Amino acid sequence: MADRPTGPTPSVLVIGGGTSGNALTVLLRRAGIAVDLVEASPDWKASAGSGITLQGNALRVLREVGVLEGVQKDGYAADGVAVLAPDGTVLHAHPELRTGGDDLPSHIGMQRPRLQQLLIEKVRASGADVRLGTTATEFKQDGTGVDVTFSDGTSRRYDLVVGADGLSSTTRSMIGITDKPEPTGMGIWRAPAPRPASVRRTEMIYGGRCLIAGYCPTGEDTVYVYLAERARDRATLDPDAYADEMRALSEGYGGAWPELRAAFTDPKAVNYAWFDRHLVEGPWHRGRIVLVGDSAHACPPTFAQGAAMSLEDAQVLAELLTGLDGWDARSLDRLLTDYHARRLPRVRMVVDASVQLGQWLLDGVRDADVPGLMGRTLSALKERP
């Protein structure tokens, strides 16, 4: 395929077709910017996960992307969470702060594959050039653009390259950023299940066999279930026994748990992962190549803010690029520096708070100011990024 010269219409390569990459692609195309998106997996929906909790500030971005209606239709909005005792007794229930504004729910739970499908449909409709089963293998930058060589042997030239390729980002390592995710000491088991009629909100138990045992409705008929514990050596775990592990860990929990436990039968539907802390403190760009989303930062799901932070990255970067007068090297460097400066304090706050909540659980701190930490963090997130 012939090189595409940099012309009057700016051209952007987005590497990674996950949440942040898809959202960014849609927003840039809407601004008239030419976008190519490459995704390493030949199946764009592969490994999309089981469930996701979308806080209000994530919904605010998804509204701008144009998928909020689908999210509301297919997800489950519940204003409020409850903390239960291991036997299922409600200890405390409260409404959540609406971080996306008073006109949006505090959160919507939904099946992650459905969110991915909604975003894919928007990307396809945007007119972006999408290539699956393709990776970037080499970057060569000069003062006016980036020449990218791909795994299929083709090459193209772009004004800007965006690495949205996740926690194990190859873009990050290819441009010489050495920061890597670090495990926090916790692991999590996750699986979808049919929604018991009694489950109408997110509910969590702290204690019992697990550090956290919780679930979030993801639709009229589905729920996303998770069990967090001290991290295990993943090499010793047998994937064929994952469903057995979830059933064993959920033993002793009352309320809806006996009904949920009965659904853990398919080991392929169960996912196990570690909690990681990741934050690139230094610049997120090298020349005309920049990181967004999990490639630049990630946090434990204790605040359910991972997707929201990635979506906010996409929104802020698209906003800055849309208002850019010239795509010369100096203007782009200034813009990407501003992008980092605007995002870093907010992302650091979320990463640190998410890690702190998990650390209190690991340390068994009984008098931790959890309400205070959550209140301060969520109140700050209500402000637009």
Rank of each mutant, 00 (worst) to 15 (best):
D328V: 11
P385E: 12
L237H: 04
R157T: 01
A243T: 05
I175P: 01
L361R: 14
G101H: 11
E281W: 11
A197I: 03
P10C: 02
R156I: 02
A341N: 09
V67N: 08
P113G: 04
E96K: 10
Q141P: 02
K382C: 11
T154A: 15
R30V: 03
G287I: 03
V350W: 06
A241V: 09
R247V: 08
A46W: 07
I177K: 14
H278K: 15
Y158P: 04
E64N: 10
G133C: 05
V148K: 09
K45Y: 04
M174Q: 12
D369K: 06
S126T: 07
T265W: 00
L118E: 05
G17S: 00
H340W: 13
T154W: 06
L311Q: 08
E138W: 07
V148Q: 06
I177D: 08
K122Q: 15
N57Q: 07
D244L: 08
T149I: 04
E39V: 02
Y226F: 15
S126R: 00
R200A: 11
P105C: 09
W360Y: 13
G287N: 02
T144I: 03
V35W: 08
R172D: 10
R63N: 07
L119R: 04
Q117M: 09
R342C: 01
D369W: 07
A78R: 01
R29L: 01
A128H: 05
R288N: 09
A128F: 09
D159C: 07
L336K: 06
Y76A: 11
R247S: 01
G358S: 08
S379D: 06
V365F: 02
A243G: 06
R234N: 07
Q116Y: 12
E220C: 00
L28Q: 07
G306W: 07
R384H: 13
A308G: 15
G51Q: 07
Q359V: 12
R261Y: 02
G80I: 04
R29E: 01
A23D: 04
G145L: 04
P385D: 13
Q111Y: 01
M246S: 11
G208R: 10
R334A: 15
V370C: 03
G306K: 09
A241D: 14
A298W: 12
L373P: 05
D352R: 11
S155E: 13
I108E: 12
H278F: 15
G66Y: 06
D147Q: 12
T265G: 09
P385S: 14
W44M: 03
G70K: 04
K73P: 01
M186V: 06
I120E: 13
R114P: 00
V161L: 08
G326W: 00
A296W: 02
K268L: 04
G372N: 03
Y215K: 01
S198G: 10
E312F: 10
P86W: 06
I108C: 11
T218K: 00
R288G: 08
M374W: 05
R232L: 13
V148E: 04
A58H: 00
A248L: 12
D369V: 05
A2W: 04
P86T: 10
E138Q: 15
T337M: 00
G100S: 06
A31N: 06
G88H: 13
